[in-house]
């Protein structure tokens, strides 16, 4: 899932400074699971902002709401009136949600309260790590289910590099060497021969080299007016 971190309070205070009535808007999906933007976090941040108003004798009005998913316009409909009545929305969704709200309500300033960090996995409660770069051309079948693009510091395709020591990456003794992990996993599954093939440089068009990516599937699109079959008569 998408993982994020709440922005530091001073940064948030700076962002909302020009606005009087601010809606702290939570999202009930990924950011709830990683404890940065669900109903509980919305309440906590709103409470902190109100407290700041009391301390600084400010007159801001801090409102709260949480929708199921900020990235779907249908779920935003339920707070549309509230959004249109405030001076700014402080979104605690990931950047996708922030942009969705901004696009749906083009006249309302939408501010990000969360830094969208990565696509990651929970290691244990309170600890998450990045495991996918969304590169658009998955090779996990060749690497024992371990992504070298995200988990190798150099994103090597034919690793490891000379900095792999005792199974750890040279950048930090806390970070395992992805290629050591890949080797061990392939050995455990009897697929070490996969390492004998040299992977040529890959095509990065599917990642970001060709500009913003987009997926279109015609069969799923809402039919255009002239495509619709109308009842006869």
């Amino acid at each position: 899932m998408i993982k994020g971190e709440q922005k530091p309070l001073p940064e948030i205070q700076g962002m909302i400074a020009p606005y009087k009535r601010v809606l702290v808007l939570g999202c009930g999906t990924c950011v709830t699971v990683c404890f940065v933007g669900g109903e509980k976090e919305v309440a906590g941040l709103a409470s902190a902002l109100r407290l700041h108003q009391r301390l600084s004798k400010g007159d801001k009005i801090i409102e709260e709401a949480t929708v199921k998913r900020q990235c779907e316009r249908e779920f935003l409909a339920e707070v549309a009136r509230q959004i249109q009545s405030v001076d700014a929305v402080l979104s605690l969704a990931c950047a996708i949600g922030v942009q969705a709200v901004a696009e749906c309500f083009p006249t309302v300033p939408v501010l990000p309260g969360v830094n969208t960090s990565f696509l990651g996995l929970i290691e244990e409660p309170g600890k998450w790590s990045e495991v996918c770069a969304a590169c658009g051309d998955c090779i996990l079948h060749l690497t024992g289910g371990i992504c070298p693009i995200t988990r190798c510091a150099k994103s090597l395709f034919n690793g490891p590099c000379g900095g792999s020591v005792g199974g750890k990456c040279e950048i930090s003794p806390d970070i395992p060497c992805a290629w050591q992990l890949i080797y061990d996993r392939l050995a455990a599954t009897g697929r070490l021969h996969l390492l004998e093939e040299v992977r040529p440089p890959r095509e990065w068009k599917s990642f970001s080299a060709a500009g913003p990516r987009r997926i279109v599937r015609e069969e799923l699109r809402v039919p255009a007016e002239d495509e619709k079959i109308r009842p006869k008569g």
């Binding site: 509980k40 309440a43 906590g44 409470s47 902190a48 109100r50 407290l51 009391r54």
Partner: peptide, 12 residues
Amino acid sequence: GVPYLLKAFELG
């Protein structure tokens, strides 16, 4: 919970 601790400050 945290909300009660913060609420105390919020209430003065």
